[in-house]
Computed example of a mutant assay.
Amino acid sequence: MTSQHQNSQTMKPATAAKKLGVYLEATPADFREGVVTRDELNALQAEPPAWLVELRRTGPHPRPVVAAKLGVSISGLARGGVTEALTTEQIEALKQENPEWLQKERATQAEVRKEAVRIKQVQAERAERAERRD
């Protein structure tokens, strides 16, 4: 693969928006209608333009970002009836309201994280024992 081929590598706007952590439909039309090169993506990440800074700050945010800000899984959002992108203001309002579904999903997510840590510890202990046997 030549360096020129790498420089011309492009992606769909949806892929670039996902990598930037923004909701595609909220991006400017020229971003949504074209293709994004790897260099353009790197430039957007290194020195985000005003529209990107504002979009990241106020939203609307894509579901993975909403889920992370609420401390739940994407599936948990769906179970709670949240299927659309939310603004930062809407996310904060949900946190303040703290509905039962959000409390339940946060508890579920906390259990999932604890279990992941436990499994990682068990695997590390097994690897250590196997290393000592060798």
Score class of each variant (00 low, 15 high):
83 T>L: 15
48 P>T: 02
118 R>L: 11
82 V>S: 07
28 P>E: 01
103 Q>T: 11
70 L>R: 00
101 W>C: 05
88 T>F: 01
23 Y>F: 13
10 T>F: 02
94 L>Y: 04
1 M>Q: 08
41 L>A: 00
19 K>Y: 14
112 V>W: 14
70 L>V: 02
33 E>H: 15
15 T>M: 10
61 H>G: 01
120 K>A: 08
71 G>R: 02
113 R>K: 09
112 V>H: 12
107 A>C: 03
115 E>V: 10
82 V>W: 06
12 K>P: 09
19 K>A: 11
104 K>C: 03
36 V>S: 07
106 R>S: 04
107 A>Y: 04
74 I>G: 10
96 Q>H: 01
98 N>P: 00
32 R>V: 15
8 S>P: 07
121 Q>F: 10
103 Q>N: 15
121 Q>P: 12
36 V>D: 07
44 L>K: 06
30 D>V: 09
69 K>C: 04
76 G>K: 00
86 L>T: 02
129 R>V: 12
74 I>Q: 12
65 V>W: 15
134 D>A: 11
15 T>A: 10
6 Q>M: 10
73 S>I: 08
5 H>A: 14
63 R>L: 12
62 P>S: 06
73 S>T: 14
58 T>L: 09
6 Q>E: 11
128 E>Y: 02
109 Q>M: 05
24 L>A: 04
2 T>A: 08
119 I>F: 15
102 L>P: 05
69 K>E: 08
65 V>R: 13
108 T>V: 06
65 V>P: 12
34 G>I: 11
99 P>H: 06
32 R>E: 15
40 E>F: 06
124 A>I: 12
106 R>D: 06
47 E>L: 14
100 E>W: 05
37 T>S: 11
115 E>I: 12
2 T>C: 07
109 Q>D: 02
9 Q>S: 03
55 L>N: 09
132 R>I: 08
48 P>K: 00
63 R>M: 10
52 L>N: 00
87 T>G: 03
6 Q>T: 13
45 Q>N: 01
120 K>R: 06
67 A>Y: 05
125 E>T: 10
125 E>A: 14
105 E>G: 14
42 N>K: 14
125 E>Y: 13
19 K>W: 14
75 S>C: 05
78 A>W: 02
60 P>N: 13
128 E>L: 04
107 A>E: 07
31 F>P: 00
45 Q>M: 04
124 A>V: 12
5 H>I: 08
92 E>Y: 09
74 I>Y: 06
129 R>D: 10
51 W>L: 06
29 A>L: 09
9 Q>A: 04
134 D>R: 12
119 I>T: 08
129 R>F: 08
